[in-house]
Amino acid sequence: MNDVLPGYVPIFMFVVLAFAFPVVTLLVARLIRPSTGGVAKLTAYECGVDPVGDARERYAIRYYLVAILFVIFDVEVIFLFPWAVIYDQLLLFGLIEMCVFLGILIVGYVWIIKKGAIEWA
């Protein structure tokens, strides 16, 4: 067995225990809390008046745009991580490579800004 994989064993144990925490506490709470119900309690909160229509209506397309932009930029960041770790071996070659990579990214970024994708006003 190599040295890296056993380091993940505790993480799987932590996942199990972290799941156990809400399950156990919610079960305990279920045993001791009251449960009276009632129609008014079960309606969606809308400042005291009856809810008007369904909540799942149309919402601003900008949220969708931000999500797409996030995917692009986050992938760029992930590409930079391994580059940063071995940068002391790559040096000049690595710097030029990354400047090309970031240059393409920045052209896209400027285009996005010009198009007004992040304008909320």
Binding site: A44, E46, P51, A55, R56, Y63, V66, F70, V77
Partner: peptide, 21 residues
Amino acid sequence: NSKYPLLGALRSAAQMVSYEV
């Protein structure tokens, strides 16, 4: 399925992903 939570969640998600970059 209520309006305030949906708006809050959308804002929250957009904010968290924006600053994560």
